[in-house]
Amino acid sequence: MALLALVRRLAPPALVFTALLGTWEAFVRLAEVPSFVLPAPSLVAATLVADRATLLPALLVTLKITGFALAAAVVGGVGLAILFSRSRWIERSVLPLAIVLQVTPIVAIAPLLLVYLDPSTAVLVCAFLVAFFPILSNTALGLASTDRNLLDLFRLYGASRLQTLRLLRLPGALPHFLGGVRIGGGLALIGAIAAELAAGAAGKGAGLAFRIVEAGYRLNIPRMFAALALISLLGIAIFSALALLSNRVLRRWHDSALDQDK
């Protein structure tokens, strides 16, 4: 039953995607477009396999940076959100700074960071910065929108602040937090890619974005597409993993996970 439902859900997008690739392939072949102008999907796939020795390590680098940045953003975002919920004063003094960092485009910050930090650290910091804010603001919102009656109930039973945080505020903020993580995960990848482009770092620590730049210099268009395809796949994988996680966690109680289960 569940399998059938899954197939039914996945079939339409898969169909559209296949049709798109088919048209692309047919167009390139029939019009005899040279591969340095537009490579056919089949050639991109072949390049993926042929260049795996350069592309896969780059994929791992980007994945690792994104993962670390997201993890740091979760720790930092949740930690700061908890501080905010404890003290208006901290919130008022720190939030503007977080907003300034958020509204300043990361591509503009990246070159500056590269002056002070070594490239791989700078990339990590950029990815962290963009992932951090949505997690912070979502979690802070979640912590602030605790059910007032439940708060009263906790007060009535003499709950300590720590008990209230652990048993009420934090679990109550979970849906908001997970929403923030989902946004943050996608942004961390974007931040990492943008910073890598700015860094233009070569060598062992090079991620997918640098491979794109490098392949561009060499007019190796198929490899550019192959690296791009890997970035898309990575983005899809991150998004799906986080969506799955959030569904797993919320499925028995939250409306946002309602139609997925059973």
């Binding site: 439940l150 009263d152 109930l153 009535l156 028995r252 109680w253």
Partner: peptide, 15 residues
Amino acid sequence: VGFVFQDPTLMPWAD
């Protein structure tokens, strides 16, 4: 003292 609110006011994440 026990308190029952107009809404059930349960914790949705807990059974």
